[in-house]
């Protein structure tokens, strides 16, 4: 179901899944191009979560998705404030994927559940690398130090991103203070509470979906939410 939420900076769209009552999960999607690549997967995950009797909300962050605000005008604080406006309005659990953990991890919630969390530094490094690889093909070169200079938003992997947003993200780590459950893919050497088989869909240009992984993660998230309670 399509809904919306209001925050200090305006009104943004969100999708809602699952029952009217019971526990609620608010999910922070991955950032930038990874959000597009994992959209179908994220929706499959939340539909599967609904089948476990857990409701969820998938907000568009300001400047992303259906947002009327251009990304060029967005700050990292906007994202956290907008997301917090939802989690503060009712008791809820936060789930976050990849770079979404940098937003969803830093707001009040009953509990946190992270899948494949990534540091802000790694998010910016990936974007910078993609730009450098693209520039090599055209014979130009991009200097990552540009991020630290003042100037217009920088075109990275299809988005014009404000430099202040890149700098703020780069300095952000996901807050994994308990109660927090971290799930990662098998083969990821970083520490986690649980590892699941699957491939990193967010890396693929033709991402498609992985219904089996969505089911596995939904079952894990539903179990975690029930253990943490309301």
């Amino acid at each position: 179901m399509i809904g919306y939420y209001d925050w200090a900076g305006g009104r943004e769209a969100m999708l809602r899944f699952g029952p009217e009552d019971g526990p609620v999960v608010v999910l922070a999607p991955p950032l930038f191009e990874e959000a597009n690549r994992t959209r179908a997967f994220t929706v499959a995950l939340l539909r599967a979560l609904a089948s476990h009797g857990v409701a969820s909300m998938l907000p568009d962050l300001p400047g992303t998705g259906e947002s009327l605000k251009p990304l060029e005008e967005i700050s990292a604080t906007d994202w956290v404030e907008a997301f917090a406006s939802i989690t503060l309005s009712r008791p809820c659990h936060v789930a976050a994927l990849r770079g979404g953990c940098l937003i969803g991890g830093n707001v009040p919630a009953l509990s946190r559940w992270f899948f494949a969390p990534v540091s802000g530094e790694a998010v910016v490094r990936d974007l910078t690398r993609a730009r450098q690889a693209a520039d090599r093909e055209t014979g130009t070169s991009f200097d990552a130090a540009e991020i630290d200079r003042e100037g217009a938003p920088i075109e990275l992997a299809g988005n014009a991103i404000p430099r202040a947003l890149l700098r703020a993200l780069r300095a952000t780590e996901a807050d994994m203070a308990p109660p927090c459950r971290v799930v990662r893919l098998e083969g990821d050497p970083a520490s986690a509470d649980h590892y699941v088989p699957g491939a990193p869909l967010w890396r693929r240009a033709e991402a498609g979906n992985d219904p089996a992984l969505a089911q596995t993660l939904a079952a894990d998230l539903a179990g975690w939410v029930r253990r943490c309670g309301n």
Binding site: A122, R125, D126, A133, A134, A157, D188, P189
Partner: peptide
């Protein structure tokens, strides 16, 4: 399949998995 985003993905995944 190996576009510029994928190059970044390959490099980062190699870094993470091989340390």
């Amino acid at each position: 399949e190996l576009d510029s985003m994928a190059v970044a993905g390959v490099l980062t995944e190699l870094e993470d998995r091989l340390g």
